[in-house]
Amino acid sequence: MTLTLRSRVSKLRDVPGSVLVASLIIIIICFAAVAAQFISPFNPMEQDLLAVSLKPTSSHWLGSDELGRDVFSRLIAGSRGAIIGPFLIAFSGLVVSAILGIFAGYRGGSIDNLIMRGVDFIVALPGLLLTIVVVSVTHGGYWMALLVLGVLNVQGDIRIVRGVSLEQRKLPYIEALRVVGVPRWRIMYKHIVPNIYPILIANFATDFAGALVALSGLSFLGLGSQPGTPDWGRMLSDGQPSLFTNYWAALSPGITIVLLAVSVNLIGDWVYDFYSKKSLQR
């Protein structure tokens, strides 16, 4: 296939600077997540009550938090959760919306109705509020938060994917494939999926960023992750009291959340624009 991203982006000069920076940030964070054990200078869980809320030093690059733990090491340890949780939510959104959205859009009729009524039901729910209630009532913790957010998140994706599938369905090439006898499922996965995947990628990026912010918000409120877990949202709220002693304890996870969310969105936008432009340029 000559249409892969790599073959198209032969020169880095074609890529806008913002996207390069965003990719670099994501690569760094992913690397931190994978190699956390090897690169973090301290054990992120080890407390030192005699050295709490220290300002940054040459050994503690971002100082220590309220329990004397190394903020930099915790930031590195937190990158894993910051990637895995949102990734799972965004990925499940991608898969489920690709299946249900394309099915609803392409098949239409009663199946479409059934799926979309389900989607309408989810839309009617007050999202974040419901998550807070469910997570605090069930004491479900992190995984419950992931599950609830994942279910709530998928509705938007299904709508979008259904919309673009409906558009594709009316295009002559799909009709021609029907006429030559290509089976329905094959049309869906061999032809519709590849042609709408810029949308899927864009969805994935927005979902990821949204889930990251939502999960961090829950952690900030003390829900979701366990107390003491090196979670960026929790670090943000835990670091708050030491704003006057070591503001890096609160500032650094805040900055990383914003950086990661913005980076993912930037890349998603760019990939989407890239493919949309290509398809316009016949």
């Binding site: 407390q47 329990l67 003491g228």
Partner: peptide, 14 residues
């Protein structure tokens, strides 16, 4: 652990 008490939260983690 009461979510609204920072002190107890920290003691618990120790």
């Amino acid at each position: 652990v009461p979510a609204d008490s920072a002190t107890i939260g920290k003691i618990s983690q120790v």
